[in-house]
């Protein structure tokens, strides 16, 4: 029997008010262990107030080969950005 501890991704909220950010990964046999390991590995210098762990295999990632169709169409949607709209300088608070 040779089964290795699976890989987990670790997300840490550094302080309340901030989002969880991807910190890295580690190996653990189960979720509880992943959480404990994450605490010991990634927050030993007081870096976090909350941790999420998710087994890496559960993450579905987009494929960079499809980046053209996925992301480029957004590039010319300039009307989504405030600078697209011309207003006279006198208009304040907008």
């Amino acid at each position: 029997m040779k089964k290795n501890w699976p890989l987990w991704e670790v997300f840490v909220r550094s302080k309340n008010g901030l989002e969880h950010r991807h910190f890295g990964s580690l190996h653990a046999a189960d979720a509880e262990m992943a959480l404990e390991n994450a605490r010991d590995v990634y927050t030993r210098r007081n870096e976090g107030v909350s941790i999420w762990v998710v087994e890496s295999k559960h993450i579905t990632a987009s494929n960079p080969e499809n980046n053209g169709e996925l992301f480029e169409p957004a590039q010319d949607k300039v009307y989504r950005h405030p600078t697209f709209y011309n207003l006279p300088d006198e208009v304040k608070h907008m």
Partner: peptide, 12 residues
Amino acid sequence: VRDAAMAYAEKQ
């Protein structure tokens, strides 16, 4: 030890 942890995780 590593095998035990895996086996336990699977049982759970």
